[in-house]
Design a protein around this nucleic acid. Sequence first.
DNA 1: CAGAATCCAACCGGATACTG
DNA 2: CAGTATCCGGTTGGATTCTG
Lengths: 119, 119
Amino acid sequence: MGKMKITEGKNGKRIVEEPCEGPCPIERGMRIVGGKWTGSILWHLKDKPVRFNDLSRQLSGASKKMISQRLKEMEENKLVIRKVVSDQPVAITYEASEFGKTALKFLDELQLWVNENGL
Amino acid sequence: MGKMKITEGKNGKRIVEEPCEGPCPIERGMRIVGGKWTGSILWHLKDKPVRFNDLSRQLSGASKKMISQRLKEMEENKLVIRKVVSDQPVAITYEASEFGKTALKFLDELQLWVNENGL
DNA sequence: CAGAATCCAACCGGATACTG
DNA sequence: CAGTATCCGGTTGGATTCTG
C-alpha cells in the first residue's frame, strides 16, 4: 500500500496509518475488472471464443455501445483477445486471455458470494 | 442466471444461451461492492471500528463527500455499521458488519490477484 | 468532529441512425 | 456482421463553503 506511517498516541498505543493514495490495490483492481459489465463479459468468454453479436444477445441488458467500449478497454488491459476469424463475411471473436482467466478465480468467488447471500 | 435457452444448431451441436438480463450475479455483486472506493473502505474497516475522519485520512485519494456517500450506501446494503460513540464531542465509528466481512474473502482474492500481477 | 449544501464541469450511457 | 457516429439528458464527483 502507501508508505506506512507509525506514530505514537498519547496513551502509548501505536497508531499505524497506511494512507491509501494513488489508489490502493483493491481500488486498482476494481478499476480493471470492476467496470460496468466487465466482469460479466469476461465470464461469458471464459471457456470459448464468442462473437460480438452473440455476446450482445447474451448480455441482453447491455447496449452494443457499452459492450464495444468495454471490449476495447479489456483488450487494452490484456484481459481479452480479439481475433478476426474471417473477412467476407466479417467475423470476429473475443476470448479470455490467459491473464483474463486468472481473474476468473476472483469472479467465481464474487458470484459465489452473491448466490450464498441471495443478492 | 437468466432463463436458459437450449437450441439445436444445424451442425447438431447444442447451443446453450443464458441471456444476462436484469443483471447477472457478477454484475449484481459488482453493483454492491464495486462502487468507487467501496472495496477499499470495507477493507479499512475489516478489523476495527474506524472514525470518519481517520478513514478520510487513510483514503487520502477520496474526498470526504465520496466517503460519506459510499458509507451511507454501504450502511443501506448492510455492509457496515454506523455507531454513535459519543455526543459532545461528536464521535462516530464505522465497522464492517458480519455480512460485510463475508465480502472480504473475495476482496482478499482481488488484492492477491493485483499483487501477483503487478497491477 | 462528522458531515450536509451548493455549484458546476466532466463524464456516462442509452437511443438512434449509419457504415463497410 | 461488427461495429462507429452523433445527440443528449442524467449522473458523478471534485472544490468549496457552511453547520451543530
